[in-house]
Amino acid sequence: MATDPLSATFAALADPTRRAILARLLEGSATVKELSAPFAMSGPAVSKHLRVLERAGLIKRGREAQWRPCELDAAPLEDVVEWAQRYRQFWDASYQRLDKVLDHLKESDHDR
């Protein structure tokens, strides 16, 4: 099982229903009942997804037993985006240097 925080976030984001739940929570906090409505899914099935999201630290839940409204916690999501951005930036920065290397290679290629 994934134990590091980033892996837990990735695993939580793997499911389309959970991503849809997060998208809904962008609009504001919601109860399990409200979150179940757009999906052909029972309350307990949605609760299961919420537990995964809660463990990944992606949502926070209120303490009142009945309502327990859910709200989004964006911090772990930002870590994932940061990772993806770093990966793209690594290649982007490298490729800009490669442009210059290729310019030199083209010159010596023509000289031959």
């Binding site: 994934a2 990735f10 695993a11 984001l13 389309p16 997060l22 964006a74 994932v80 993806a84």
Partner: peptide, 19 residues
């Protein structure tokens, strides 16, 4: 992990924009 990584990355870019 990989499944989450891939779809998560794409989706989380959109989510972060919204956020």
């Amino acid at each position: 992990l990989a499944t989450g990584m891939m779809s998560g990355v794409e989706r989380s870019f959109d989510l972060l924009d919204d956020l």
